[in-house]
Design a protein around this nucleic acid. Structure first.
Length: 301
DNA sequence: TCACGTCAAGCAGAT
DNA sequence: ATCTGCTTGACGTGA
């Protein structure tokens, strides 16, 4: 069991997601920003190791416009050494990495252009992981996509599109239940047809669920992660009080988290917190997790 | 220096 | 029709 948080660190004073407007695009600008973003990413990872947070989601904004036709710059090669340095740090410290391409990735879209953009964006995410030389236990998580008034048909379209993807993309792709359309059961169905591991999102399941027993769900989920995929990744969040329904909490509800941890037994999972205050809540969650015998201490280098 | 309108991309549900 | 949320406010023009 590892504890992690997503994309942004709020205390060390740098961002790995600086970006710019497309109309200001230039290769020079890209080089400058990516240099900054990679530098900051390594700083965040060092901070995380120091705090024993060994799970981290890398922002999709690491290389802005990487999948956009405007970008012809060979960033993979140009920053090759920098990516490898970060990858080495990740491997040396046994950090687990995930990435979560955003809402525009819709593999089962009915529009050709949306599909093409989605595949290019997945290629970009795969390229980042390749550049860091990370194995397939580091994952890229997406949702199944739109329903378009016919879930069965839309699932079938997802499965067909999945089969057409490059192996490089497929080996790291996992699907996650979302908060309104595709439940865990739907994802398990897709998994059965494709072999894709299912990433369980606890908060989405609360919002859009078949109300099964947590431990039972995790049992089913765990079967979809094969040996080289690593242990299942799980996203955790809770409803923010005073926030609009479905929006993530500002800080962790530690009682709810403790409850989640105890109900998740006996399955070993890596937990990604989707909480607005980021590492602050992650460190609180860590204290809870460290009391559990599934937790592994970081290696002392 | 700073306010504030705008920013590559999709979808569903609420208002 | 428009807004909101999603992993999240940042960018940079124009005053």
């Amino acid at each position: 069991m590892k504890i992690g948080y997503s994309c942004i660190n709020r205390s060390i004073g740098c961002k790995s997601s600086r970006t710019f407007r497309i109309k200001n695009y230039s290769d020079e600008r890209l080089k400058e920003i990516v240099e900054n973003n990679l530098g900051c990413l390594l700083k965040i990872l060092r901070f995380n190791v120091h705090k024993e947070l060994l799970f981290f989601r890398i922002t999709s904004d690491l290389v802005p416009f990487a999948s956009h036709p405007i970008c012809k710059f060979p960033w993979q090669g140009y920053f090759g050494d920098h990516f490898r340095e970060i990858g080495d740090f990740i491997k040396k410290n046994k950090i687990r990495i995930s990435m979560h391409p955003d809402q525009f990735i819709v593999l089962n879209s009915k529009k050709k252009e949306v599909l093409e953009n989605s595949v290019r964006e997945l290629k970009y995410h795969s390229d980042v992981m390749e550049a860091m030389k990370l194995n397939k236990s580091h994952k890229v998580q997406i949702h199944v996509g739109g329903v378009y008034g016919d879930k069965k048909k839309s699932i079938r379209r997802f499965i067909e599109r999945y089969h057409d993807l490059d192996e490089m993309i497929k080996k790291r792709l996992v699907i996650e239940n979302d908060d309104r359309s595709y439940t865990v059961s739907d994802c398990l169905l897709v998994s059965k047809a494709t072999g894709i591991p299912v990433l369980f999102d606890y908060f989405h399941d609360q919002l859009n669920s078949k109300k099964e027993d947590l431990s039972e769900i995790l049992g089913l989920i765990s079967n979809t992660w094969k040996r080289n995929d690593g242990i299942p990744m799980v996203d955790y969040s809770s409803q923010g009080p005073k926030r609009r329904p479905k929006s993530h909490a500002e800080k962790i509800d530690i009682g709810d988290f403790e409850n989640f941890i105890s109900r998740s037994r006996p399955y070993d999972i890596d937990i990604m917190l989707e909480i607005k205050d980021k590492e602050k809540s992650a460190m609180k969650a860590l204290k809870v997790a460290k009391k559990d015998k599934r937790f592994i201490l970081p290696q002392v280098i």
